[in-house]
Design a protein around this nucleic acid. Structure first.
Length: 288
DNA sequence: CTCCAGGGATGAT
DNA sequence: ATCATCCATGGA
């Protein structure tokens, strides 16, 4: 490993490894004492040394923006609800920041995330990058950028199915074609208020409420967005409504928006990551 | 082997 | 308006 870093980036209240392992992005890989990954089209190497990052492959400004080092994390955490579940999660996730990811890459990876474990989302991302992305080198290591919508748009559904996408192939292809044809402009959507943005994203094939909220949170800087997946729903039910059985559709969404408020996305990400990393794997039937 | 995963779209009550 | 079913795949 010969990547030598010259550039230092101040990064207080930041945990690089924790952030990269929190299920926001799915392609960074451990290398030496740091991580290699792509930031848009650039191959980047990042090492954390205490309260700063040592980086190679991209300007400090690009890296700082990607990892949202400008977010006032202390203020955000201080404003989170003061209940036991939230406190336990936020202590567990100290230094975890909500990233600013490229819009298409974020949208596409979450379209492929449906009913998939994080490990397999990573595998799908890797295969798509290696087959259809652009090779980028950094020192003696290399990686592949995420394939552009124009590239995927020219493929056949079978090409994507061969990347183990299953039924998600049709949705990814259809969405890529809408963007490549300029029927949909992801950058333009950034001007919309939350509700209109969510509605626009949900109009894309393979995008429902949960995926739309992930893209809003991880790529559109909408820190109110509160994606509810199976993990978060489990936490909400068990920790916030331990006696309830039935919920109206949207009832948990409504509660979360009201209860967690302006930084709900951070609350959600902390609850998600804490639950995913501390819930023991169910014992196999044979071992019980 | 079985169970489950950062769901969404569709059609039946 | 809710509920059921189907959709593919592989890690644990």
């Amino acid at each position: 490993m010969t990547v030598c870093c010259g550039v230092q980036v101040p990064a207080p209240d930041f945990d690089l490894a924790l952030t990269l392992d929190s299920g926001q992005t799915f392609h960074w890989e451990s290398l030496g004492k740091g991580f290699v990954g792509a930031i848009d089209q650039r191959a980047v190497y990042v090492v954390q040394r205490g309260d700063s990052l040592e980086i190679d492959g991209a300007p400090a400004k690009v890296v700082a923006r990607y990892f949202s080092l400008d977010h006032p994390l202390a203020e955000i955490c201080a404003a989170l609800p003061n209940d036991p579940a939230m406190m336990a999660a936020s202590v567990f996730c100290r230094g975890l920041r909500i990233m600013r990811q490229p819009k298409w890459e974020c949208l596409a990876t979450f379209i492929t995330s449906s009913m998939k474990q994080v490990a397999h989302i990573r595998q799908i991302s890797r295969t798509l990058r290696e087959r259809f992305g652009t090779r980028r080198s950094l020192g003696n290591t290399h990686l592949y950028s995420y394939p552009l919508p124009e590239v995927l748009a020219d493929l056949e559904e079978s090409d994507l199915r061969h990347c183990a996408l299953g039924y998600r192939a049709k949705n990814l292809l259809a969405t890529a074609r809408m963007i490549a044809s300029e029927e949909m402009d992801l950058e333009l959507l950034a001007k919309l208020p939350d509700d209109a943005l969510r509605a626009a994203l949900c109009a894309l094939p393979g995008v429902g409420l949960k995926v739309a909220n992930c893209v809003m949170l991880f790529a559109y800087e909408r820190l109110r967005a509160f994606p509810i997946d199976v993990w978060v729903e489990r936490v909400l039910r068990e920790k916030y409504f331990p006696r309830r059985r039935k919920f109206r559709p949207g009832e948990l969404q409504k509660f979360s928006a009201q209860y967690f408020g302006a930084h709900g996305g951070y609350a959600q990400q902390y609850l998600f990551h804490h639950a995913r990393k501390t819930t023991p794997r169910r014992l196999s039937v044979r071992d019980r």
